[in-house]
């Protein structure tokens, strides 16, 4: 028999944490697992949806702190996110369907560590960190890149929970998010991209950030490629080169698949399209 708890505060929530804990926020993953026959008996199900402190977005010192149970729809509607991390607004807008966006949370999306998470590339774009609290009330922060180990696995310990996500404000950057799925709505991403660019006055790149997800076991930011682009102008040749490098790295990590041949031209076209959209 499962044990269900519905705490009203974070403090109360921490008291319910046991080794057998399972968190439920939007339930858009867990309820589907339950339907598939996932056994929750003997588990402690902690419902996070009645904790007001766990939802909302705060702006502090050039950063946004997005509380774990903020829904995708809340993010789409949030003015600070729209201003400081447009790519995340765009990404959350592509999640599932209106019904899913109304329930699914950004903390849940990070916690389930799905390789096809749509918010993930946008969060990584902005040096996203996970803020974690344990049963004793001790907090720690970890970079998203380190937090996600492999599909479905994170460094979150049994006595811990995700409190929030912190991202850098990229207010001055031009940003874009692009997703490829089999259909427009309710599609799991096959490939998703987030990009941010800051240009110098002389039309050279001051800073660029490129993240690719879904095609890889773990969403990846391409630091090495980014570094080589600083100071360069965006020319056809540069775009071709970047697309080739990203495609090669994606294929090297993911291994050859039936879809590999299709992915290289797609990556090139997507990068072109995103640059055009950002008007750089």
């Amino acid at each position: 028999m499962l044990n269900y708890f519905r705490p009203k505060t974070i403090k109360e929530c921490l008291e319910f944490i046991t080794d057998e804990r399972v968190y439920i926020a939007g339930g858009t993953d867990l309820m589907v697992e339950l339907k598939k026959g996932h056994d929750l008996s003997n588990k402690t199900v902690i419902d996070l949806t009645h904790i007001p402190e766990l939802s909302g977005v705060k702006k502090v010192y050039g950063e946004l702190e997005i509380m774990a149970c903020t829904t995708h729809d809340d993010i789409v509607l949030n003015k600070d996110v729209n201003k400081c991390l447009k790519a995340l607004s765009l990404a959350c807008r592509t999640v599932g369907s209106p019904q899913i966006r109304n329930k699914g949370t950004v903390g849940g999306s990070v916690g389930t560590a799905s390789p096809a998470s749509d918010p993930m590339p946008a969060l990584m774009l902005a040096d996203g960190r996970v803020v974690i609290i344990n049963k004793k009330g001790e907090m720690r922060e970890e970079k998203l890149e380190d937090f996600i180990i492999k599909p479905g696995v994170t460094t979150l310990k049994n006595d811990e929970m995700i409190l929030s996500l912190k991202v850098k404000s990229l207010e001055d950057y031009k940003q874009s998010f692009f997703k490829i799925g089999r259909r427009k709505a309710l599609a799991i991403a096959r490939l998703n991209f987030a990009m941010a660019i800051l240009m110098n006055n002389d039309e050279t790149i001051k800073d660029i950030r490129i993240v690719v997800g879904a095609a890889l076991p773990v969403t990846k930011r391409f630091y090495d490629i980014e570094k080589k682009l600083i100071g360069k102008k965006i020319t056809k040749e540069v775009i071709e080169q970047v697309s080739k490098q990203i495609s090669e790295q994606v294929l090297a990590i993911a291994g050859p698949r039936k879809s590999s041949e299709y992915k290289i031209p797609v990556i090139r076209n997507v990068i072109n399209r995103m640059l055009k959209e950002m008007e750089v």
């Binding site: 269900y4 519905r6 439920i24 339930g27 858009t28 309820m31 589907v32 339907k35 419902d47 949806t49 009645h50 729809d73 209106p98 019904q99 899913i100 109304n102 329930k103």
Partner: peptide
């Protein structure tokens, strides 16, 4: 005030 799929909503919540 917001739509949801009741098949994946835990009644208890």
């Amino acid at each position: 005030g917001k739509t949801a799929n009741s098949c994946i909503v835990l009644a208890a919540s």
